[in-house]
Simulated assay, not measured.
Amino acid sequence: MLEAPRGTTLAFDFGEARIGVAEGDAEVGTAHPIATVTGEGNEAKFAAIDKLVREWQPRQLVVGLPVHADGSEHELTRLSRKFGRRLNGRFKLPVYWVDERMSSLYAESLLAEAQVFGRKQKAVLDQVAAQAILQGFFEGGAAEFFNGRED
């Protein structure tokens, strides 16, 4: 059985063009959107993520795991896992994957409630989706865990 996560956690809503990032405290169970990472190429994106990791000093990372509605995997599932393994390799922090099937819908509804639409919504949608992923992690746990070792 895994020990319950403690301390600061960064969560990522991975996309090939944009990566939403949220921060939260595992002990309090609250999550907040903090950034949308963009850039030309992986090195630019990882440089921005490196700054966030240094600023927030997380004890663990959470990555949304996109799957079809029936739970089957697709190409973005594979890329999200690869992204999580790269985070682990770069920052030596445990990575938890969380089912993100409902995160974008949740994020869109939160932003609609806040009367955020159009370009303003697009600018923050990924980080609010990361917030939903992190909140799901705090409330329901992880679908998978990775600590740098393949089974």
Rank of each mutant, 00 (worst) to 15 (best):
G15K: 01
A22M: 10
L87K: 01
D25K: 09
N42S: 11
A112Y: 06
Y96H: 11
P5T: 05
D151Q: 09
D99C: 04
S72W: 01
N42G: 05
I34Q: 09
R6C: 00
L76Q: 14
A130M: 12
G15V: 02
G20V: 04
A123V: 02
A4G: 10
D126Y: 10
S80L: 10
A11D: 06
Y106S: 12
L79M: 15
T38G: 08
L61H: 01
E108R: 13
A4C: 09
Q115G: 14
Y106G: 07
K45Y: 05
P5L: 00
R81H: 12
A47M: 03
T8M: 07
P58Y: 04
G7L: 07
E43Q: 14
M102H: 08
Y96K: 07
Y96G: 05
E27Y: 06
A112E: 14
P66Q: 05
K51I: 05
A4D: 12
E113M: 14
E16P: 01
P66I: 02
V62Q: 07
E16D: 10
A143S: 15
E113L: 14
F14L: 03
N147V: 12
N88G: 06
L65E: 01
V53D: 06
G140H: 15
A48H: 13
T30D: 10
V128P: 06
R6D: 00
R86M: 12
F91K: 03
A22I: 08
I49E: 03
H68L: 13
L105T: 09
R90A: 05
R54V: 12
A17P: 01
Y106E: 12
L65R: 02
E23Q: 14
K122V: 08
Y106F: 03
E3Y: 05
T8K: 09
G64D: 07
A48D: 13
A11Q: 07
A31N: 10
L79W: 11
L111Y: 07
A107P: 07
A129R: 04
M102I: 00
G39W: 00
G15W: 03
G136L: 03
L110I: 08
L134Y: 07
L79Q: 15
N42Y: 01
I19L: 09
S109M: 10
G41D: 06
E139S: 15
A31C: 12
F12Q: 01
E27D: 15
G141A: 11
L65Q: 00
Q115R: 15
D99Q: 02
E3P: 06
A44F: 08
G39T: 03
S72C: 07
L93T: 08
L2M: 10
V21A: 11
P5H: 02
G71F: 00
Q131R: 14
A107H: 04
E144Y: 12
F146G: 10
W56R: 14
D13Y: 00
P58M: 07
